[in-house]
Simulated scan of single mutants.
Amino acid sequence: MTALKGKAVEAFIARRDPDIRAILVYGPDQGLVRERADRIARQVSPDLKDPFNAIELADGDLKSEPSRLADEAVQLSMTGGERIVRLRTAGETAAPAARLLVAGIESGRLKPTGVVLIEAGDLGKASGLRKLFEGSKAAVAIPSYADAPGDIRALALAAARAEDLKFDDDALELLVTLLGEDRGVSRSEIDKLILFKGPKSLRPGPATISLEDVRLMLVDTVADAAGEAAAAAADGASARLARALH
Rank of each mutant, 00 (worst) to 15 (best):
L211M: 11
V140I: 15
Y145L: 14
G184Y: 04
L132Y: 04
D170T: 12
L165S: 05
L218G: 02
L172C: 05
D164R: 13
G150T: 10
A162S: 14
A160D: 04
G128S: 13
S201H: 02
R161H: 08
D164T: 10
V176M: 02
D170S: 12
D147C: 05
L174K: 13
P149Q: 09
Y145E: 13
L157T: 11
L193Y: 03
G135L: 13
V176R: 00
L129S: 07
K131F: 09
L216Q: 08
I142L: 14
K125N: 09
A159I: 06
D182Y: 07
T177R: 14
L202G: 01
R130C: 10
E173S: 12
L129C: 12
L202K: 05
E163F: 06
A139Q: 01
D164N: 15
L155F: 13
E181K: 12
L178W: 02
D151Y: 08
A139G: 09
P204H: 09
G184I: 07
P204A: 14
K131H: 10
E163K: 04
M217Q: 13
A171L: 11
P206M: 07
R130A: 09
K192S: 11
E134T: 08
V185Y: 00
G205R: 13
A159Y: 00
I152T: 11
K125F: 06
A138K: 05
L172R: 00
L216H: 08
D220P: 01
S136A: 15
V219D: 06
P149Y: 07
L178S: 02
V185T: 07
R215E: 15
F196P: 00
S210Y: 04
A141G: 12
L175Q: 04
A139Y: 02
V140H: 02
D169I: 10
S210M: 09
E189N: 08
G180M: 09
P149R: 06
R161N: 04
L216E: 11
T208S: 15
R215T: 08
A146L: 11
L195G: 12
L202C: 00
